[in-house]
Nucleic acid binder design. Structure first.
Length: 264
DNA sequence: AAGAATGTCAACCGCGTAAGA
DNA sequence: CTCTTACGCGGTTGACATTCT
């Protein structure tokens, strides 16, 4: 039992697009747009393709404002920072990079940036020690219900890429039950809790109330406990900074553009 | 030179969800 | 309110290119 296919697979062409198909799609979309309906569009454009395939081809390759390859250091920093704060929200991350698609960012992360991160971790003794306690690498998985940015994750990224400015802003303190972190973070003294205690002590105090089943999004292999995280969210309490100083992200989150805005 | 291994990236799959009937 | 349809997204696959042995 599977989901009903969006189109008749036997009747549509699949695989790589030919230049002729590209031109047919490009000229149709430029003349008429998608018509608000990608499913019916291929037929109108004279293409034997699934509508989803057409949409993907247009969004990821044919759009005139697309840039491919050649990611800059600044883009690396944004990707790294947003990934550590938001996780694999590729569409959100890509929306902050002009001309980049979610597919491009995702591929770039999976094939290059992640490896650089691991390589950096391997050459940094203390970071490597953290990684060794909880392989795979300590990517923070955010609670599905709240998904706040995390200063701890940004701090970790800063430890790996000291030359990059990875800002965070603390606007509110949440209770220890609200946020969970991978085991790799929990007994590392560099990740201080908002109340001034270390994450280790915070984790220890909360250990009795946490279990792996409590939050499947917590990651870190299932072991571990909660710890208090600083985070940036919401439009109130941005420390008096102008709204223009922040990227507004879906869900009411804000990403500080100026490193000097770090309030943690 | 040839085959194997690895890297890259376009494309596909299927799920969640918004919108409309 | 329920059901259907289409869109958007993240995860995964597979073809092709490149590097290694």
């Amino acid at each position: 039992m599977g989901r009903t296919p969006c189109c008749d697979r036997a009747a549509v062409k699949r695989g790589p697009w030919s230049p002729e198909e590209d031109e047919a799609l490009r000229s149709y979309v430029q003349r008429h747009g998608s018509g608000g309906n990608w499913i019916s569009m291929p037929k109108k454009a004279g293409l034997k393709r699934c509508g989803k395939s057409c949409r993907l081809r247009w969004l990821n390759y044919l759009r005139p404002d697309i840039r491919h390859g050649g990611f800059t250091d600044d883009e690396d920093a944004v990707i790294l920072s947003l990934y550590t704060q938001l996780g694999s929200k590729w569409s959100v991350i890509a929306s902050q990079l002009e001309g980049r698609t979610d597919n491009d960012v995702k591929n770039y992360w999976n094939t290059k940036l992640k490896k650089r991160l691991l390589a950096a971790a391997a050459t940094t003794a203390d970071v490597a020690a953290v990684s060794a306690r909880s392989p795979p690498p300590p990517v923070l998985r955010l609670p599905a219900a709240a998904a706040p940015a995390t200063a701890a994750a940004a701090t970790y990224a800063a430890a790996l890429f000291p030359s990059l400015a990875i800002p965070t802003v603390k606007t509110e303190t949440y209770t220890i039950d609200d946020f969970l972190a991978p085991a790799a973070f929990q007994d590392d003294d560099r990740f201080a809790a908002a109340d001034g205690s270390t994450s280790a002590s915070a984790a220890s105090s909360a250990a009795s109330t946490w279990s792996a089943a409590d939050n499947g999004a917590a990651g870190g292999g299932g072991e571990g406990s909660a710890f208090l995280l600083d985070f940036c969210a919401g439009s109130s309490g941005l420390g008096g900074a102008a709204a223009d100083d922040y990227l507004q992200l879906p869900g009411g989150y804000y990403y500080p553009l100026d490193p000097s805005l770090s309030l943690v």
